[in-house]
Design a protein around this nucleic acid. Structure first.
Lengths: 337, 337
DNA sequence: ACATTTTACGTAAACGTTTACGTAAAAGAT
DNA sequence: ATCTTTTACGTAAACGTTTACGTAAAATGT
């Protein structure tokens, strides 16, 4: 048996109500009894049972995070931001990786419902109608992170992917590159797919550089392996390119690694710019120039939004975060000065 | 108001006891009423409140994981193993990163106590007396992961670090290296510190190779930056070495990256073997030869142990996992054949 | 000194479940 | 047909809190 509020009350010769009041410092007790009770609590090593609290308060101090793949390095920083912030709010988080599987997602949603989480952060994936309706019924706040919905009124935090892709491409162009390829991940990806391709295309057009279907290859995902195979494909289609925009850092690393094996030197013969600015970007050889998103801060913000919505019982404004080009060593300036 | 078991009972014209019985399929209801109740549940979209359940069952289906730094890539695989397995058991996990801070650790322990977790996995850190006593009072199972305690009877799962370090060094030796340095992380680290140094030393002695204080440098941690500075230091102490054993993959990457900048070619001029076999090990240039631990499986096992202890209410045997040398391209065979 | 307000409590209901116990009806045994 | 067992429920207590309500004592006001 563990020690309950009753034990404290008995030993301190007060009612449980008084103990509870002291614990939550609601008015209704004297300095003297507070001292006594506090001492007893100390002596007994009492800790309130937050399950019982949750039952009556209808607040569990727990939020749920749904994300496609925890293994993806991208998620790390984001999760760190979420967890740190959540803990600062005196809450904890339940992480659920859905593997982009609809059924699994629904299962997790159910789990989160049963566990009565106070809110949900839905990350990096398309918010399907089914998900939305379920969460709506749960009647708890949800915010979208690194994704957005055109159909449902759910606040989001993300960067402008199209704009960021434009910037990356522009950076390549300003460094004198003219024949530029792009290796995209899954085209259907709502946020990392088409928008980044669009940004790339738009930049090429804006600078009046030639661009065709041959300039872009789409892979199944955003992993190292996708980078490897993407590079092989792009090589065939666009053999004389001097630079590549990769839709993720992992893809970029796949490119660099493959190029290394093919004796193509980066950046001397081939420039590569990535997207994400993962920790590994600075560990790569050469260190990877890439598009940075403030992932930690985004996780932080999303968490704050969830708590704000929970407390104020109303929606909150979406937030677009700025991106930046993190210059390192994988892009060469080829302008003939 | 959300839908409770009462609503279901009322609409189905039965008592809440019956509904509960059906939900938990305990005996005591007919096929007919089951059908009716199930239908009503479906119609109302009822989901049991696991907080209320937890209160009465004294089981929350939640476990806590304590680890020093979530950012460390090492933890990723481990956490994946833990989370996947936990979810398979119909439970969820609360991750707490303590940053090796005693005060923070105690705070989290308190949080986990208040949230009434069913068990705790304590990872990669020294189990201090204070922690042990606290968890002992909580009276829930705990298992140590990637660490162990000589003082307290807590089951653990880890690899034999000394042995693994011996193997790594031996691998270098068998590839013909004679002047071999080691870059260690924090020496005080109970599992990744001295044991790996000991393994290194023992292998050197076993093969009668010279070894002195100059052969080993210890850094503050196991990060990329530690590898960078460690390499600089070791270079001074042992300029003619042909191979390095790094106490972590991140350190190894730091070495390789620095070597690259100093125009020292890996593995042609310098061989490097790492420790951990992180995802990034295969992305590096050249791909990193390293000591692999079955991290995912270890997380899996630790989780299973926690649940087993919870159910059987008794301790369980510790488990040493095998390590392996993952051969890639960062070590050159220098035997003159 | 007395009326009034405030303070400092205690009592009990409530949160949404599970489960021990009781009981009437159905089923089975003789 | 009667007795016994089994089945299919319902009632109510319990889990550990919070909190609305009530009340006696203390503090304040006149």
């Amino acid at each position: 048996m563990s020690i309950t509020i009753k034990d404290v009350a008995k030993k301190a010769n007060v009612s449980i109500a008084t103990v509870s009041r002291i614990l939550n410092n609601k008015p209704g007790y004297s300095k003297k009894t507070e001292e006594i009770v506090l001492k007893v609590i100390e002596e007994l090593g009492y800790h309130p049972n937050s399950i019982a609290r949750g039952l009556i308060n209808k607040r569990t101090h727990t939020i749920g995070v749904l994300l496609p793949k925890i293994s993806s390095m991208l998620m790390n920083e984001i999760i760190r931001g979420i967890e740190d912030t959540t803990h600062q709010y005196g809450s904890s988080v339940i992480v659920c990786h859905t593997e982009s599987n609809g059924q699994k997602t629904m299962q997790y949603l159910q789990l989160l419902h049963e566990k009565q989480v106070d809110g949900i952060i839905f990350t990096s994936e398309t918010l399907k109608e089914e998900y939305y309706q379920f969460v709506k019924k749960m009647n708890i706040p949800m915010v979208l992170l690194s994704t957005e919905s055109y159909t449902f009124p759910v606040p989001f935090v993300k960067v402008n992917d199209k704009h960021a892709a434009y910037s990356a491409t522009e950076y390549l162009i300003k460094n004198g590159h003219k024949t530029i390829g792009m290796i995209s991940g899954k085209k259907e990806d709502l946020v990392a797919g088409q928008p980044r391709i669009d940004g790339f295309l738009q930049a090429m057009k804006a600078y009046e550089l030639p661009v065709s279907d041959n300039h872009v290859v789409c892979e199944d995902g955003f992993s190292f392996e996708d980078g490897v195979s993407g590079f092989h494909n792009l090589q065939k289609q666009l053999p004389d390119m001097t630079a590549i925009f990769a839709a993720s850092d992992e893809i970029a690393l796949g490119i660099i690694s493959t190029a290394y094996q093919m004796n193509i030197r980066v950046p001397e013969q081939l420039s590569v710019i990535g997207y994400d600015n993962l920790t590994i970007a600075e560990m790569s050889i050469p260190p990877l120039t890439t598009v940075g998103q403030p992932l930690y801060e985004m996780g932080e913000k999303a968490t704050e939004m969830v708590f704000e919505m929970f407390e104020k019982k109303q929606t909150v404004e979406s937030r677009i975060f700025p991106h930046e080009i993190v210059e390192r060593k994988s892009v060469k300036n080829v302008t003939k000065a």
